[in-house]
Design a protein around this nucleic acid. Structure first.
Lengths: 228, 228
DNA sequence: AGCAGATAAATTGTTGACAATATGAAAGAG
DNA sequence: CTCTTTCATATTGTCAACAATTTATCTGCT
């Protein structure tokens, strides 16, 4: 949580929302952490009014839980809840892929390939940056959701679910498994998109996410086990 | 928008949230309507602080759109956006059905049948109450989502999407088509759930929602066409 | 010592006032 | 007459203080 002044956001409430969300998904405010309004208002140099509005917006993203008269806490997800999120993600990104296959042009697929190439390059050169590979993975999925053309789906996945996923990932050690396999699967998905094969693209994406779920659950097992 | 004092909610903000959401999904605050803070705060007899918090929560439900320094408006969905929502709903409720088939016991299915019987009875007796049939339809879907056991899915569908659907329905004339067909499809879905056939239950639910989408889009065409 | 209840501190909920911005109306130029 | 500019109004954004509730601390009793 940096103490920098303002991120040139139109309103203090929006700025606080951005900063808080960033702090949460980065793990600086770990799951279960209490949201202390006086402390944060001092830290951000703003009043409690806009801060509370930001917290209510975070509640809408399901990143914090508010208990009346007892304040807000960063949401803490146990294994079954993480599984639930991956189930939802599988269904929604499968849909995104099916839709994207009908709308993606040659340029779109090229953009996807370039993105994958960049990530592959970053991974091969600097081995210490698995962290970025994580964010890169979301970039890929982000782009496909955008290609789907379904704006409601976009706001659901990129506005809520992906942030929840980043929050979950911040809980684990940060050591990523199976980057090579993920790249292969990503390319296969683009293959299907290029052919306009929505059915296959959906199937591949669902499998890809299902595998990611199992990988992540294994990582959770190897991490400390508070189970929240 | 009733002027009654308070609905015994723990906090004024939560109370205002409930009242505003109800007013929106009931069509009392129609799509595109401006959310006037001074007016509503007078109307609710509360200060603007908790009211603003309620509005930020409504934004999280996607029921209002906030433009910085210009206030909030009730969201207005055009045909393509409604289509997008139905696409998402199809994927998510398909998932819900598949999951519910694995968890639903005999008692759960009986409860579903009873619910359907009640609705069928209401429909046959009082013909003027198509309106309730609408809400009853959501009750059925609500129960299935609950049976899925996926709490994240529940909060997504019942906390957000269903309210959006009710908002959309308030735009149309209120004259419901195809109640008989819907009942038949509902029963077929319960049939599949009873047999524990998740694949079939998902397929039937997806078809059911797809049909509901087309019906609704036709109703929209017969209504006035501002297209927002 | 350990626990129950009372007291004090801290935090959340709420309010009304002030500042900044946007909306709408009136006046003036082309 | 239309468009632009200016000004008045209304609304949003923010703040600091107060009230209500919860949490923590400290007694006093068994």
């Amino acid at each position: 949580m940096k103490e920098d002044a303002d991120r040139s956001s139109p309103t203090l409430s929006a700025s606080a929302f951005d900063r808080l969300r960033q702090a949460i998904v980065a793990g600086e405010l770990p799951p279960g952490a209490k949201i202390n309004e006086p402390q944060l208002s001092r830290q951000f140099g703003i009043s409690r009014g806009p801060l509370r509005e930001a917290i209510r917006r975070l509640e809408g993203c399901k990143l914090v839980e508010i208990r009346p008269n007892a304040g807000a806490k960063v949401v803490s997800l146990n294994r079954s809840q993480v599984t639930e999120i991956y189930e939802i993600r599988e269904a929604l990104e499968g849909l995104a892929c099916r839709l994207a296959a009908r709308r993606a042009g040659a340029g779109d697929c090229l953009q996807l390939r370039q993105l994958l190439a960049e990530h592959e390059h970053q991974l091969q050169s600097v081995d210490g940056k698995h962290y970025d590979q994580q964010e890169g993975d979301l970039d890929f999925h982000f782009l496909i959701v955008q290609l789907s053309g379904n704006s409601q789906l976009f706001s659901l996945l990129c506005g809520e679910l992906y942030h929840l996923l980043r929050l979950c990932r911040a809980q684990t050690s940060g050591i990523r498994a199976r980057p090579a396999r993920a790249f292969k699967e990503h390319h296969q998905i683009v293959d299907a998109l290029e052919r306009g094969d929505g059915e296959l693209a959906e199937l591949l994406m669902r499998r890809h996410i299902c595998g990611a779920k199992e990988t992540f659950l294994n990582e959770l097992n190897q991490t400390i086990t508070p189970d929240s």
